[in-house]
Design a protein around this nucleic acid. Sequence first.
RNA 1: GGGAGGUUAGCUCAGUGGAAGAGCACCUGCCUUACACGCAGGGGGUCGUGGGUUCAAAUCCCUCACCUCCCA
Length: 878
Amino acid sequence: MEKRFDPSSYEKKWQERWSEGEFFMAEAPSSKPSFCIMIPPPNVTGNLHAGHALQTTIQDLLTRWKRMCGYNALWLPGTDHAGIATQLMVERQLIQEGTDRQSLGRERFLERAWEWTRQHSGHIRSQLDRLGASCDWSRERFTLDELLSKAVRAAFVSLYREGLIARGEYMVNWSPGLETAISDLEVEMRAVAGKLYHIAYPVEGSDERIVVATTRPETMLGDTAVAMHPQDDRYAHLRGGKAILPLVGRQLAFITDEAVELEFGTGLVKVTPAHDLTDFEMGQRHDLESLQVIDRKGRMTAEAGAEFAGLDRFVARERVVQMLQEQGYLVKVEDYAHNVGHCQRSGVPVEPMISTQWFMDVEGMAGQALEAVASGDLRLVPDSWNKTWDHWLENIRPWCISRQLWWGHQIPAWYTPSGEVFVAASREEAAELAGTDEITQDPDVLDTWFSSALWPFSTLGWPEDSADFRTFYPTDVLVTGFDIIFFWVARMVMTGLHFTGCTPFHAVHLTGLIRDADGQKMSKTRGNTVDPMELVEEYGADAVRFTLAILDSPGRDIPLDLDRMAGYRSFGNKIWNAVRFSLSRVGRATVQESLEVAELAAPERWILSRLSKTAKEVNEKFAEYRFDEACQRLYHFFWGELCDWYIELSKPALAGDSPRPQVGEVLLTVLDRSLRLLHPVMPYLTEELWQRLPGREEIHPATICLAPYPVAEVAWEDPATEGRMEVFFQIVAWARNLRAEIGVPPRDKATLFLDSADAEMLSFLGDLEAMAIPLLRLDELRLESPPTDAHSDVVAGVAVGLVIPEREMSAEDRERLVGEREKLLEQRERTQDLLANEAFLAKAPDKVVEQNRLRLEEIRDRLERLEAGLAGDGPGVS
RNA sequence: GGGAGGUUAGCUCAGUGGAAGAGCACCUGCCUUACACGCAGGGGGUCGUGGGUUCAAAUCCCUCACCUCCCA
């Protein structure tokens, strides 16, 4: 076996073999229970980032675990067409070529977009493959596939016919950057250091001037009223009168409306129904005229007046302010920090605008989604998200689902020349409904998230009653970042409940955000992003996966620490060498399916007992989505118990110095199960090493991917042996510590004395003689009371003594012992006080009282030895 | 303004009522033929502040401070 541990020497090999085989293909139908995860589809033309690597790791871990547990496991991969993102990329390409989408035309633009998509479509797969993702690629899906498009049309038509989707003229969030409407979720509030302009409006037929305050003076050009709160007595005299709009001269009625805040500015506000949501609603209540003064590109319209028409809205603002100033209407300007909605994608301030769009009424579905979490049908992990979930769904508003884009699912609505609308799954059907062939399809496309919302079932063939749908739906768990809990998760739950009558998954594991080592958010602008493929290159996929999994503690962001990743690569090296060593020493031994523990010596019984408990715990932790704790346990078991203790203890037996029954068999069997336990997290390394274990082909499938996942072996659990071995380990630690503290050169041999009133314990320790001697570099082990010239102490009830020839107690030794005595005295006092406390004796559980009694006893024993050592001339006590 | 989370060893984080843990970093000694991506040993924390409940609090309750994020 190669001495060098080098992940690159085997990771690609297994990646290729796995993809040749059909290990990851799920069956439908199947006699086995199903387990299904739908990948959150990455953007088809995108790149995997660190967050994807985390989610991929978790999803693959779960899928591999369940597959090994005997489930018909499906992890369905796929990509999203990502309407805006992809369209922007193609448009950028066109601009470089000196053209644009308008001059290309819709059809040719879409051809280009498909070409672009095809060019990139293999990229995501190759990255997932490299991470070891065990997806079923025979079921790969793309949101614009015909299969999914059919589902999108079916869902749209159904919702339309139920009256839950409708077209209407409302105020929407308009992105002048993208020139499309966007949903509330795509608006990002940003703190802006703006100004508050106080503007005087003359009152008609009076010398009085009222003052209104606004952060957006350019919208005054579209004002059609002035509003006050109905209980505001300050302006009662103005009711029924009119104000005159400066610069324009239009008459503005005074209206009263509850929406006006008494405390804001003077209490009088300008009303611009076409460019502010509150004003729009007031406009509807009071039947106000609505004047659109800003267009789709964010420029002033002709309605704004000849002086402003065509100006950018921010240029117009300066101009309006300047003119107000010149004409004496500007009362004052204050600095004003406020939040302004920005288009998440383009970064441009959103322009509230009245426009005709398709809206989906989600209130009823939101109620069902609320109920699903409240009743426990759907579990959010961690459940600290429940409140956020409730709050959002309780305040949900209609979802604007139409986008003025070309790349996406074109809305399945057709119009007759007279403007009548027919919604149908196909043009033919629409024509039939319309009774004419002269129909044109709505040019808009659906919000990308509309098709994503159907992902868990559209990918399985819904609305057809397919074998896949019957086998895998509802799916089991969704693994995704909390940042898309509303964009995606809530909407999948809503549509799932609506169309399929159940939540599309039973649990949602929400991962934290990957941050850099300093805890900073990763972003392209900061330049601190990490390319997971580079990490894989440097550390190996297994180390990347192990690091991400062990750092994934619930509800917390993950600072990606590369030192730590290097540490887990070392763990791979450790595993490699443990197997290499074992294979070179076990002779003809083979992996066993089961072992009869009664015939085994203590170290074998101990490691098998520990293995059983580890298997039990790892299964439990996986089931609880505590991947961090599961990995912690695996790491500690393999390194801290198997390597540090068991392999060391088995060396004398393997060398034939002190044979024990079935040492090789036990070692190989423990390795077999350990590798299987580790496989979901470290698939490559475990497969590579597992293949080399002699005898495993007799009892297992050809790949570790399909081998059974280890569970607890109750017959192997042996608490008594574990307890005694623990005493032995403590004694070894005591002796090692002593040797190191007093600086005994490693070559110097010593004699260990052990004595105990517990005869069984003593004989147990005596049986470990052959192991204690090399571990502690002893001349001999003697089961008798330590002589006076020994360094002695009491460890776990056993009197221990170490005699190191030709050494006298130095000043440092004495000093150390005095320090030790101080500590013991302090502890004795504390424990004595506690045991003298009647309330404690009365109320604390017996177990705790007993624990403290034993503690006190041991402290006294140790003090006694220590005092004796300090008093005598010998090496003393430690 | 509303909500969520955080504050534990130099760093990044586990730990939810009974004497403070991990990885990395650090110090000391070791190339003990599986592994220097290693072995052994060690130092290091009044568990943010103030109060309360309890025989017993990092852990439960309240106050305050600071940090992060989400929503309006």
